[in-house]
Nucleic acid binder design. Structure first.
Lengths: 197, 197
DNA sequence: GGCATTGCCTAATGACCCTAGGTTATTCCT
DNA sequence: AGGAATAACCTAGGGTCATTAGGCAATGCC
């Protein structure tokens, strides 16, 4: 009887593919095992639990998304870079809806695993360095990074949840949101006196 | 043997409370039944399925959130109203994390149920009428509404997922994001020539 | 008090998560 | 090459959960 040649990576990938096809919460140990032509119990040699698998899918997604963004903004600057960054973010969410939702789920991921994943750390560096073009000083820079991430994530998240009625296509709203984001980054509002530093 | 006095509303409420306590995806028929002192099977007299229950929780949350926002912005205008609106949104998400996540899940909800729920429709009216203060014409108004929703939802969503590292408290970033939102609504960027209407 | 309604229960099926312990294919060692 | 060591994969089984079917008793109407 030949072997399937499993590994934590192959199991994670199968889970990620399944997540994109049927939704993250239909990713079950049994379903992943079926897809790999293997019995459920066999997966536990490579993955600690279903939650562990979900965590691994989330980290995979974070890495992939970061790489896509890095490639998109390479060699660009200013608004060009901003648009490329946002475009890459949104396209990743569209292409991999299951993996994308895995990244939003608040979960306890094995710290050892997180430490080995370059995605999250790299993503932060990329974002900060891109926004440095807007000449913001800390803590404004951090706030701007968070605003941008909120806007992008919120948009694709609402879009995926069907939050935008059919009246006007999301496609048309998207570039206007990027314009708005660019505008506010250029003219970042001053702090009022009395505001916390 | 006395009766529990169930109804679709009581079941939904129990589910909502449970969602806030242990997270939406730990809301199970069995758990809700236990909390109500009843057997699992009894719930099916009031709720069609687990998915149906989730949908009802989502609609309940939408209604509650809309009411909270409506009360917050009553009698306010301009930036005051914007801040009150955003504050109410975020505080609802904080107070009811399980119900809030129920609203983001893309699900098929019984259309008859949706039609009877005032929340979603009312929320749209509220938002549009509030943003009318910024004197935007369609389709800019729609885009602005979507940008605002994206920003607010994205912020609380990332916050809940632990997306903001501990370095700077989310509490400090929040008002700056509202400032930025207000700024961009006041100076809504013009469309470029060649842009789709 | 009789009767229909319906609220809740018992029973049962099947999916799924996960553990324990056994086999067999691979790998490595000499 | 031959055998030992190491995984990889399987069978068996217990527990939780979703959902359906059918029974009985509490409630409300006359």
């Amino acid at each position: 009887m030949p072997r399937a040649g499993l590994s934590a990576e192959r199991v994670t990938l199968a889970g990620a593919e399944l997540a994109d096809e049927v939704g993250l919460d239909h990713v079950t140990m049994s379903a992943v095992a079926r897809r790999l032509g293997v019995k459920d119990a066999s997966l536990y040699a490579h993955v600690r639990s279903l939650d562990d698998l979900r965590g691994r899918i989330a980290l995979l997604a974070a890495d992939e998304k970061t790489i896509r963004i890095a490639e998109a903004i390479a060699g660009r600057a200013g608004k060009d870079a901003l648009v490329a960054y946002a475009q890459a973010w949104r396209s990743y969410a569209h292409d991999h809806p299951g993996r994308y939702t895995a990244t939003q789920t608040p979960m306890e991921i094995d710290p050892g695993l997180v430490a080995r994943a370059p995605g999250p750390r790299r993503a932060i560096e990329l974002t900060y360095s891109m926004l440095r073009a807007y000449a913001l000083d800390e803590p404004d820079l951090t706030d701007a990074v968070r605003l941008m991430r909120s806007t992008l994530h919120g948009f694709v998240s609402l879009e995926a949840a069907g939050g935008f009625a059919h009246a006007r296509p999301a496609e048309a709203t998207w570039p206007r949101c990027l314009d708005a984001l660019h505008t506010v980054l250029e003219r970042w509002p001053a702090r009022h006196e009395g505001d916390p530093r």
